[in-house]
């Protein structure tokens, strides 16, 4: 077997562009998930079944769906059925974001649940209104738990985003695919894209580690 790594080097521009598209999809989808996740988590935590049940179903639905199925359904299925013609990039961001908003909702819920009920009572007894309590007392404490998990989720989203090329997003894998077909060198180009994913995930996992450390600083005991 002969490796022709110079082909990969020559194709560094499209591969880099693809990597940026992959990152763009993952980052924008994270934004969608972060925004949608919180209201869903709050609905899910409602005492009233009428409110919490739809949120529960939403979470179950999107947790049980794979990106590949959802993206094909939205991109091809919905365009024929109801004439909804989303561009592929938007479809990818929305699908990845929706799926992960369900996970994000569970992350928010865990975070909010770690804040004891006593905190609400204490804040109420100080005469703070319900909304300021949530914003100033509960949310900051919950975010300590939420932010590291969200960062972890982002790493998963980055990996999941590898599939978005199936609807025509020019991400890293789609570029690698095109180059593979052009040169008929699958091993070189797939190895290269695997290496890029490895580096990205490694880098972001390190970031997650640092974030975790930073956000648990006040509960760490010094010197063991």
């Amino acid at each position: 077997m002969d490796l022709r790594l110079n082909l990969v080097w020559n194709a560094r521009r499209p591969l880099l562009e693809g990597t940026l598209v992959t990152l763009e999809v993952a980052i924008l989808a994270l934004g969608v998930a972060l925004v949608l996740g919180l209201p869903i988590a709050l609905l899910r935590m409602s005492r009233f079944k009428v409110i919490s049940l739809p949120a529960f179903l939403y979470i179950q639905f999107f947790r049980g769906t794979s990106l590949y199925v959802l993206i094909l359904w939205v991109f091809f299925g919905l365009s024929i059925a109801i004439g909804l013609n989303l561009p592929s990039f938007e479809a990818a961001v929305i699908c990845l974001g929706l799926l992960n908003s369900a996970y994000m909702a569970e992350v928010y819920r865990t975070g909010l649940n770690t804040v004891g009920f006593g905190q609400w009572e204490a804040a109420r007894s100080l005469g703070i209104g319900e909304l300021p309590i949530f914003r100033l007392v509960v949310l900051p404490q919950a975010l300590r738990v939420v932010i590291p998990s969200a960062a972890n989720l982002f790493v998963d989203m980055l990996k999941d985003a590898a599939i978005v090329g199936v609807v025509g997003v020019w991400d890293l894998m789609k570029q690698a695919d095109r180059l593979t077909k052009f040169h008929f060198r699958p091993f070189e180009f797939y190895t290269a894209s695997a290496a890029v994913y490895f580096v990205l995930v490694f880098f972001f996992s390190r970031v997650v580690g640092l974030i975790e450390k930073r956000f648990s600083r006040h509960v760490q005991t010094r010197g063991g």
Binding site: K159, A162, T180, P186, A194, Y197, V201
Partner: peptide, 23 residues
């Protein structure tokens, strides 16, 4: 560490097409 950082899609194509041509 290796397998947790590799998307399934990438590994699938790498194993199926890459190995066929390379090895």
């Amino acid at each position: 560490g290796f397998f947790r950082s590799l998307p399934l899609y990438v590994f699938l194509l790498w194993l199926y097409y890459g190995f066929k041509v390379a090895f």
